[in-house]
Design a binder for these strands. Structure first.
Length: 697
RNA sequence: GGGCGGGUAGCUCAAUGGCAGAGCGUCUCGCUUACAACGAGAAGGUCAGAGGUUCGAUUCCUCUCCCGCCCACCA
């Protein structure tokens, strides 16, 4: 790529001239080789909607440093690139595109809409992977994976069918978190709560035997679906209410007062109206006391036929009207302000409704136990250790996972409903069932339109991407790294899925890496305008300098307040390295005829220091302390190799040339995982023809 | 409401039961033939606050105050 003269004649290193060329040179060598002593890294597949952000950047640079270091330690690296179809996220971005054209998916129809999504996938699906190349990641590009690959889709269906046969999957009508804009159910993890000041209405409910009680609610429109009233059994104020009958205003339904521990005596009046259709806590109470489920709000957020004269109104209009009528009846005791948390769709930011819907659920108790056991027995090591606590806490309190979505984009669930009998009759199968419906005795099956929660699919990632016999040996992986926010969403679910289907944890170590914050300690976010685009940084500083700058600031345990200054420092360091090797080459020429075989004091000192540095770096990398490792190498190279050792070669010297060679070549190897491009370039300039990472450290 | 992390030099962060450290920045001096994108050197800190354990605490324990994050079905 370059000759030694280029190094001798240029005092400045220009990354922009070489980084891409060097990357392209490497690509064939990144291929996972046959053989033994593998180190297997599992990539977190980015969404096809994505473009590179600082989180991906940090995460994958960390992994690449480890990959390159392990290569130098003699390992064969297995690290496949891949992407996630990301159901709800992708559907949402395509819908946003349509909106710009004045369209929406309902106007377009399902078929045309899906065509549009596939067009998007073709156009943008690989953008982020191309951006990964700019980071210098040593990924095996001969094996690109996607969560809608044939084999992958097979595995997702397989998982559903096996869970179903084992009795872990059931269908139920339950109140779920529903996004009226995406028009789908959501899992607990896809909700974002926001604080908001609302009104708390104190409403009088007449008692059948005279008098009244007062309940407090922020959602009076749901009262039309009330099928009970509840108080806490320990609440002394209301002992005599238990068992009494209440007349629901406006509807005149008779309700019974039950007692349930879930009622918080401190909230409002301490009396709860129970609406099992539109509240999860009420649903639970309803189950315990055998209360009816009456839904009054539909999928559009409008009042339905059970809402009587309010039918057809938007829930907010209905609220207003209901309050008006209650006021006329003198049933509003007071209205207070309340600051509370309101659920929103984490994708499109629409306020959610809780409505009853038929959905598929995965029973979590057994699976949670598998996941708990895997970490307890150290089959999976979570680093830093402190993340074990939230891991266990989440699993201990877990509820069944709603795995179905009513989206259009995603993998269809392998279930067939009888066209005549609907909900009452279905078959779980990949192909259209041949047998007849038990109820109507006809063969009239239609595949469901429901799709999987995209996380159900990505939970299978560690083994669903392994399609050939050779690849099957790459399970389990040694290492996966992720951001904190997908610990439950992804990591935990991969662990129990792996344990369940493969009988083994899907990876040995999970490194939960720090979050990249702004210099002020704020979250980086596009919408807030606080984000930094890594591609801009690469354009300005080059990849090696970016890698230096971000890892310089990295500590294994603490969030990273991103500052650009260390990137400038990185550029300076690259130039320092460049010139040190220039001097090395010139010095070798100058002393070419020297026959000195003695080891000088300076030689001894630098060898000692080199060994110490290697040991320190090895230990630090094992602990994911890449920032400390880099700082140590930096100090070693700059202060000890350059300021001390190379200086001692000026003028006349008693140093040994072989020691010089060893120090300079070993330094190059030590620097390589962090600064791969420049070290490879210098390696070429010194007359070598192979990838530097095939050397041994 | 529960949990986690952090508060150390102007900035970003280390380390440690026994003189408080690095990089950047600042200041001084040097363009010594690899590099001024450099070299030599200097200044700079009541280690958030209070109490406790100890011969000795920035470090261990308790409490308080700030900052950040996560989890939770308060209607």
């Amino acid at each position: 790529m370059i000759k030694i003269d280029y190094l001798k004649n240029n005092t400045r290193y220009n990354p922009f001239e070489f980084e891409e060329k060097i990357y392209n040179y490497w690509v064939p060598y990144f291929k996972a080789k046959k053989g033994k002593k593998f180190f297997i890294i599992l990539i977190a597949p980015p969404n096809i909607t994505g473009s590179l952000h600082m989180g991906h950047t940090l995460e994958n640079i960390i992994l690449d440093i480890i990959a390159r270091y392990k290569r130098l330690k003699g390992f064969n690296i297995v690290w496949f690139p891949g992407t996630d179809h990301a159901g709800i996220a992708t559907q949402y971005v395509v819908e946003k595109e349509l909106k710009k054209e004045g369209l929406n998916r309902f106007i377009l129809g399902k078929e045309k809409f899906l065509e549009r999504v596939w067009q998007w996938v073709d156009k943008y699906g690989n953008v982020i992977l191309d951006q990964f190349k700019k980071l210098g990641l040593s990924l095996d590009w001969s094996r690109k994976k996607f969560t809608l690959d044939k084999k992958y889709v097979w595995w997702v269906e397989e998982a559903f069918i096996r869970y179903y046969k084992a009795g872990l999957i059931y269908r139920a009508l339950r109140p779920v978190n529903w996004c009226p804009r995406c028009f789908t159910s959501l899992s607990d993890l896809e909700i974002e709560y926001k604080e908001r000041v609302d009104k708390l209405y104190y409403i009088k409910y007449p008692l059948k035997d005279g008098g009244y009680l007062t309940i407090a609610t922020t959602r009076p429109e749901t009262m039309l679906g009330d099928t009970g009233v509840a108080v806490n059994p320990k609440d002394e104020r209301y002992q005599d209410l238990i068992g009494k009958k209440v007349i629901l205003p406006l509807i005149n339904r008779e309700l019974i007062v039950v007692s349930d521990l879930r009622v918080d005596p401190k909230f409002g009046t301490g009396i709860l109206k129970v609406t099992p259709a539109h509240s999860l806590i009420d649903y639970e109470i309803g189950l315990r006391h055998d209360l009816e489920i009456v839904s009054v709000i539909d999928e559009y957020g409008k009042m339905n036929e059970n809402a009587g004269s309010f039918k057809g109104l938007d829930y907010l209009q209905a609220r207003e009207k209901i309050i008006n009528e209650l006021e006329k009846l003198n049933l509003i005791e007071k209205i207070e302000k309340i600051n509370h948390l309101v659920p929103f769709c984490s994708r499109c930011d629409t306020e959610l409704q809780i409505i009853p819907s038929y959905e598929w659920f995965l029973k979590m108790d057994k699976l949670a136990k598998l996941a708990i056991e895997a970490v307890k027995k150290n089959e999976v090591e979570i680093i830093p250790l402190r993340f074990k606590k939230p891991y266990f806490d989440w699993l201990k309190n877990i509820r069944d996972w709603c795995i179905s979505r009513k989206l259009w984009w995603g993998q269809t669930i392998p279930v067939w409903f009888c066209k005549n009998c609907g909900e009452k009759s279905y078959v779980v199968d990949r192909r259209k069932p041949k047998k007849k419906c038990k109820i109507c005795k006809k063969n009239n099956w239609q595949k469901t339109e429901e799709v999987f929660d995209t996380w159900f699919s990505s939970a299978l990632w560690p083994f669903a991407i392994l399609s050939t016999e050779q690849e099957k040996k790459y399970y389990p992986a040694d290492l996966v790294s992720s951001a904190r926010d997908i610990l439950h969403l992804w990591i935990t679910r991969m662990i129990f899925s792996g344990k369940y289907f493969m009988k083994k944890s899907p990876f040995k170590k999970v490194f939960i890496h720090p979050t990249v914050l702004t210099k002020e300690g704020k979250r980086m976010s596009k919408s807030l305008g606080t984000g930094i685009d890594p591609l801009d940084l690469i354009q300005k500083y080059g990849t090696d300098a970016l890698r230096f700058g971000i890892i310089w600031q990295l500590s294994a345990h603490q969030d990273l307040r991103f500052d650009q200054v260390p990137l400038e420092q990185g550029q300076k360091f690259l130039n320092k390295i460049w010139n040190a090797y220039r001097f090395y080459v010139l010095t070798k020429e100058k002393f070419a005829n020297q026959k000195n075989k003695k080891i000088s004091q300076a030689d001894r000192k630098i060898i000692k220091s080199l060994e110490n540095t290697k040991n320190f770096v090895e230990k630090s990398i094992e602990k994911f302390e890449l920032g400390l490792a880099l700082k140590r190498i930096y100090k070693f190279f700059w202060n000890e190799v350059c300021d001390f050792y190379l200086e001692s070669w000026k003028g006349e010297t008693k140093n040994n040339l072989q020691v010089l060679d060893k120090v300079m070549i070993d330094s190059l190897k030590l620097l390589h995982p962090f600064l791969p491009h420049i070290t490879q370039l210098i390696y070429f300039a010194l007359g070598n023809k192979k990838p530097l990472f095939f050397e041994k450290i």
